[in-house]
Design a protein around this nucleic acid. Structure first.
Lengths: 214, 214
DNA sequence: GAAGCCGCGTACCGTACGGTACGGTACTGG
DNA sequence: CCAGTACCGTACCGTACGGTACGCGGCTTC
């Protein structure tokens, strides 16, 4: 193990540059070809041998898992900026989360990876689903909830349960978009539309949970 | 074609009793075994020959399609009762839709079928996704929207676009439930919880779109 | 520059599974 | 009683794909 090889807290080696290239090839293939991904195709596309693939990732599942992790590692939707919180900055931060989240779930990569993970969850031993869940729904929740709590502490929001409040936010933002995309609906979302959707969701959320500043 | 053999408007034969039994076997297998459904397993479970399977349904996709259609044909979540509309009955009908919808998406069968359809949408020629979409999200939308319109006509609701209003309703009801279940989250929903969730969603929807009766 | 390793390319193996063929049995109509 | 039909059970075929083996070229190390 070299000095530069960092470990994630979960105990997985960070992929080397070459390995990252392989994982990017998997993502590209997944996006282009749908989900009937073969090890042969990956090897061809990444210009590496199948043997190397198996050496690095163990088996097909390992490759898929590494790919999902790799994608997750560079999607940090709506990282909160911190700073003081007033009504305007609260709205702004929520809007930021909403836009980031919609950007993610509307992306081809996210759709394909979620499809893989969902199919995987249908078979036994589906930790892929758990990984996607942890880096998607759960991660965004973990980031939004503190903001909501801060909003409550500042007297800008009123709710009993932060989890419930967040789930409402989640529902208002995502609505039917993700399931439609997963099921193959052609639904095109450009940036302006996403921004408008996000703004509407935030408005609705604040209408439900907001309080006039005391 | 016998006199009793009805056709759906889409032009598909209604399955015979024996065929229905086969499709039920498929559903059972799907629920029990996850989604690695083989034609052999179906034939064994349904006590029929593979040849018959192919004769009746064409190929594996045809069998899957017929199964999805068959399930869809007996799920009519939240059929509207009609009748006069005041604030109370509007709330009641929306609650009814919400409960039915949650019942459906929380069911094992729905989860498995959605998984199949989503995986299918990832490959080419995925009409399965379209079918599930048509009988799920789109069907419920088609039933709820008239109620919303009626509510608006009665001065109980205020909105510009019925589609947008419905999608908000959809988001408030479903929130993160469907994606979590699809990804394999263990999320258990009993009847009382569903009722509570549905009631909260309807309250929130009415808070956003309701109007005091003029 | 020899030794050794890494990894590419390719050929190969085993098996699971979609799809087909065929014989045997029960039922129906003439 | 004899076609004809429907359908069950099972054996079979072809292929796609996960996984393995092996030879060869290029890079590092001493």
């Amino acid at each position: 193990m070299t000095a530069t090889a960092t470990r994630e807290e979960t105990g997985h080696e960070a992929p080397s540059a070459r390995q990252q290239a392989v994982l990017d090839a998997v993502l590209a293939l997944l996006v282009e070809e749908g989900d009937q991904l073969t090890m042969d195709a990956v090897a061809r596309r990444a210009s590496c041998s199948k043997e190397t693939l198996y050496k690095w990732f163990g088996d097909r599942d390992g490759l898929l898992t590494a790919t999902v992790r790799w994608q997750a590692s560079r999607v940090h939707a709506g990282r909160d900026a911190g700073g003081p919180l007033d009504a305007e900055s609260l709205r702004e931060r929520l809007l930021d989360f909403a836009v980031s989240w919609l950007d993610v779930i509307a992306g081809r990569t996210s759709v394909v990876l979620n499809r893989i993970a969902i199919a995987h969850a249908g078979s036994r031993k589906g930790n892929l689903g758990a990984i996607v869940l942890a880096n998607g729904r759960l991660a965004i929740g973990a980031r939004v909830k503190p903001v909501l709590e801060a909003g409550r502490a500042a007297g800008l929001l009123a709710f009993d349960d932060g989890e419930t409040a967040f789930r409402t936010f989640f529902g208002l933002v995502g609505r039917d978009i993700q399931i439609r995309l997963l099921l193959g609906d052609a639904l095109e979302l450009d940036a302006t539309e996403i921004r408008r959707d996000a703004a509407r969701a935030v408005d609705q959320f604040l209408a439900l949970y907001g309080q006039a500043h005391p």
